[in-house]
């Protein structure tokens, strides 16, 4: 029973990190209707900045630098690439982000090489034990940080003028523009926020028990995609639920992979995708996605 509780709590913690990534992904989608396939590379960029700076300037400044760095990369992608393409077909825009992803991922994996970079976090491998349940401190930190950021984000989304502008733009770009909303600012803001959230997620994807930041970290980040789509690509609630679902599934499947040996090794990494396929078979628009009423 206590093992199950451990798996569950770890899963929720992991899921909250996926939710963080998925949230940024959904924000970009709502603001610009673009599916950002470069999202995992944004995350890698943020993590990389933190990893190379923490020795010189200390962990917390390095983390802030990583967040700022990923936000700047996101904003730069919007400003120098996506903005020039506005008006193109959305499938084509998605492929443009694939081009951006190829560029970013090649550069970052070249820099990282075969190294495993530490991010210099203060938690190390310490654990806390409560009532027979042992949890790594990093998992608790992840859960708290993600919870805090998600709450702050949802409040901002609901109550600040930026959030209102973003939701209006998602509703109808033309009308929003007529109402004086600067679509450019909304969209660059979305990319920057998504980058920042991804950088925080990068930290928690690479701390204990994971060895550190490596070129395959982007594969872990990719699991935010099934999280986002099984929740419903246009729903922030969906991103949260989807993230948790993916995190818990992965944690349980990895935890019990001894019992699942007949499915082969590494089933935990595959499980999120299987859950996504199962959900999409039943609900093609995701759990919370709206089947948009067509305007014709």
């Amino acid at each position: 029973m206590s093992t199950f509780a451990e798996f569950l709590i770890n899963g929720i913690s992991l899921g909250s990190i996926y939710a963080l990534i998925a949230l940024g992904f959904v924000v970009i989608f709502r603001a610009t209707e673009v599916v950002n396939f470069a999202h995992a590379s944004l995350l890698l960029a943020g993590g990389y900045v933190t990893a190379v700076l923490h020795d010189e300037i200390g962990f917390w400044p390095a983390l802030l630098a990583g967040i700022a760095g990923a936000a700047v990369v996101g904003a730069a992608v919007e400003f120098f690439v996506m903005r020039r393409h506005r008006g193109a077909d959305h499938s084509v825009l998605a492929i443009v982000t694939i081009g951006v992803d190829i560029l970013l991922a090649t550069e970052l994996t070249r820099r990282i090489g075969t190294d495993i970079l530490a991010l210099g976090d203060p938690w190390g491998d310490s654990v806390v034990t409560v009532g027979g349940v042992t949890i790594a401190e990093t998992r608790i930190a992840a859960l708290l940080a993600a919870g805090l950021l998600i709450t702050a984000f949802l409040l901002a989304f609901r109550y600040t003028s930026w959030g209102v502008a973003m939701r209006a733009a998602a509703e109808n770009q033309e009308t929003a523009a007529l109402m004086g909303i600067r679509l450019g600012r909304v969209s660059i803001g979305a990319w920057a926020v998504a980058g920042g959230l991804a950088a925080v997620a990068a930290l928690f994807l690479t701390v204990f028990p994971t060895p550190g930041l490596e070129r395959t970290t982007s594969l872990a980040a990719l699991k935010a995609f099934p999280a986002a789509i099984l929740g419903g690509l246009d729903s922030t609630t969906g991103a949260l639920v989807g993230g948790l679902l993916v995190g818990v599934t992965e944690s349980l499947a990895t935890g019990y992979q001894g019992d699942l040996a007949f499915l082969g090794r590494g089933i935990g990494d595959l499980a999120p995708y299987l859950v996504m396929v199962a959900v999409l078979l039943i609900r093609p628009a995701g759990l919370f996605g709206t089947k948009e009423p067509a305007r014709v």
């Binding site: 499938s91 995609f225 082969g264 090794r265 995708y273 093609p284």
Partner: peptide, 25 residues
Amino acid sequence: RLRGAYLGIATLALIFIGQHVLFNA
């Protein structure tokens, strides 16, 4: 049933299923 980029994300599953089977079977 899925359109455009939605299908793009869903088909990511095929990559991972494929890799899993290729390495395990």
